[in-house]
Design a protein around this nucleic acid. Structure first.
Lengths: 404, 404
DNA sequence: CAATAAATAAATCACTCTTATTTAGTTATT
DNA sequence: AATAACTAAATAAGAGTGATTTATTTATTG
């Protein structure tokens, strides 16, 4: 089975025609996407949902089952007629590797077809160094792949990298020597990893990858349109339209940090100057508190006291402003806020953001639902791993990555 | 020939499967869209562009020609091999009707397959009244349709309406009695017009329709992503992503008037409070100038003097802010500004907006090209007429209107 | 046993692709 | 100037693929 070649892809800028193999590939992806979304489905139900004939669905699903992508469950009895056979995603059907490169640490994970991590490696550092990261990946990959069975190894679909764009611009904030960070300017991590892998490699902005993870693995994964904010060392985000991640012309849509917001002391600032963990770090230093636990114990900020509350208020105000502006451009139904922070802090941030939105002038605006992300700090690595999943198995027309 | 049934449409929320007739319909739309975009194309070129075989294109284009949608030109000689036959859109291939309902006037136009108006009617009024507009449409339609030949009458593909959403909320601004405007609340113009037409009727927000006109008939019609501002009595706009108009969940995406921008005297306002012709009207009244020529001679504002310059500066500042916010969400390559104002005013507005953007903090942002719209005040009526054109003949997957 | 729903095999239909042929010109050679 | 070689466009015929339609089988309820 192929499952390659989109039915209609905006290859470069060019619209392609569609033929039978593209049609079948599309229908196969459609079936897989629907089964994933509903966890379990019987064939007749899929026929009804897609409008395709029962026979077509029968053929397609038999093939997907033969390929080991779907597994059949116990027949459902107790209703009139022949029992129906529920089919679901085979967790062992495919494996995906995700690499997150951050300012303070890197993560490497392997997930199964359901998105469940089956292996992982972590590395912390003072600042990211190309060679060290490449060595970490090389070693971790070798170990983790070896730990998989032979059959599973052949089912690795690809590796995705989630990394901030233009890493070299942040030597100041990261606290690294500029010469070190400048090395990133000419270091092509994707190419280097490509060279040591016999499966495809993908690269995406880290916050956009986190958004992809929320789209596919999030709790209410059927949302059609939402905007996603990831508050990390910096702030970034992603946009989902019509159930598809929108990466934009440059692949850098959702560069939300550059949004202008009212400054704390008049004038305007950029969102990144108000909503990021770097801002908290500066506040702590100003308050005479050691900020290093921020990165060492990211799940416990209780020792920071009221500084965190002040930070939450600042972030919420900035986010509220950015959210209202976003919604006036695209009528997002839902806004998701996630980030590398303790759950309690995230929950407080969501509540204060809702309040800050309510305090604004909302005439002509449908107030969106503001919710906490359901994934948390693993979102970026998970999103990285989801890149090959999107590319090979899911309906995500023309948005995530433009065709080569 | 059918040309109906999308290959993959988000019907409601449901993803549909694809079959052969859908595939053919898609390929036919693709061919028509390409010919439209390039004005003239020979078959082999289309085969190369679409990736389809020469034979497939041959069959499809022969059918489109037989249906009268394409016409062949003079064979091109002077090159090795058999001369190629250029094909182009048949101007008489289809006709579309557009109705614009504004705060001060209504327009009804008929355009041909190339978007050229072939008939039009205009009606001015102090405020819009449902019965009067319906009568205007009924009468105008009868006359204009009668003036077409019998063959042309059968080629009318549909009628589109461009109208502000929630007309009834503006009794104050329009200066109409609230009771009158309240009638719109329960008056379903689409249904009423549907009843007197034997072709499909479409309805869209007026500014979004203007954006559609710019997308399909604008000078550089190949733009993939842009945001569009229409400065009319109020302000509105539209969004084009991947070459398709994005209408959003509620069909009201690009409700740009609600965007928060810095207030002229501190705090924040909504964009609509700075960027609309209503604002100019208020300025004129405050300056002791009669504003009525605004609506009576919309092509000549020279008599208003320096008030207009102050207004331009205000609008430019607000727009600049909204543009930077937009671009930080979606990396639009191009921003188009159009509106119901004299060309010279529009040109000045574009220049001042560019300057205002340059004065902002643009770190992390790719400065977009800001350009004047190429259509002007007819954009809304033209956009209305383009609604059935999109629906029947063009590739515009899943964005403009969700399937019934 | 009748009724019903799920599943699918076989036959049919629609569409694109491949291959081979025709057509109409240009370019090179005599 | 006449002729041959070559090339590109266009398309007819046949093959291949995939969805649909029709008919049949299977398993269950009542």
């Amino acid at each position: 089975m192929a499952l390659t070649g989109g039915l209609q892809e905006a290859g470069g800028q060019q619209l392609r025609g569609s033929n039978q193999s593209g049609m079948r590939a599309y229908n196969e992806r459609l079936v897989l996407s629907l089964v994933r979304r509903h966890a379990v489905l019987v064939k007749t139900e899929i026929a009804r949902m897609t409008g395709l004939s029962a026979q077509t669905i029968s053929v397609i699903m038999r093939e997907l089952e033969a390929d080991g992508l779907l597994v059949r469950g116990e027949p459902i009895r107790g209703k009139v007629g022949q029992p129906s056979v529920p089919l679901s995603i085979n967790p062992e059907g495919a494996f995906f590797i995700g690499l997150k490169v951050g300012r303070r640490s890197a993560d490497l994970i392997v997930i199964n077809f359901l998105g469940k991590p089956v292996a992982s490696r972590h590395a912390g550092y003072a600042y990211p160094d190309p060679d060290a990261i490449l060595a970490f990946v090389r070693e971790g990959l070798a170990e983790m792949i070896a730990a998989l069975g032979a059959d599973q190894q052949s089912r690795i679909a690809g590796l995705g990298i989630a990394m901030p764009f233009q890493l070299w611009n942040w030597h100041d904030e990261v606290g690294a020597p500029q010469a070190q960070m400048d090395r990133w300017r000419h270091f092509d991590l994707k190419r280097e990893i490509d060279a040591i892998c016999n499966f495809p490699v993908y690269l995406q902005n880290d916050a956009t990858a986190a958004c992809a993870a929320e789209l596919i693995f999030g709790e209410r994964a059927s949302r059609q349109d939402f905007i996603y904010f990831y508050v990390g060392s910096f702030i970034g985000g992603g946009i989902v339209l019509n159930g598809s991640l929108y990466a934009g012309r440059s692949g850098n849509a959702g560069a939300l940090g550059s949004m202008p917001v009212p400054g704390r002391s008049g004038g305007t600032e950029q969102l990144i100057d108000q909503a990021s963990i770097m801002v908290l770090e500066k506040m702590l230093v100003a308050d005479g508190i050691d900020p290093s636990p921020l990165w060492q114990t990211p799940e416990d900020w209780s020792q920071f006291g009221p500084s965190v509350d002040r930070w939450i208020a600042t972030v919420a105000t900035g986010l509220a402003y950015a959210i209202v502006a976003s919604v006036s451009i695209i009528d997002f139904e839902t806004v998701i806020i996630d980030g590398g922070m303790p759950q309690a802090v995230r929950a407080a941030l969501v509540i204060e953001t809702r309040a800050a939105i309510a305090a604004m002038d909302l005439q002509g605006i449908d107030t969106p639902n503001v919710e906490a992300g359901s994934i948390g700090s693993i979102a970026r690595a998970l999103g990285a791993a989801s890149l090959p999943l999107f590319d090979k198995y899911l309906i995500d027309q023309h948005t995530l990555m433009r065709e080569a």
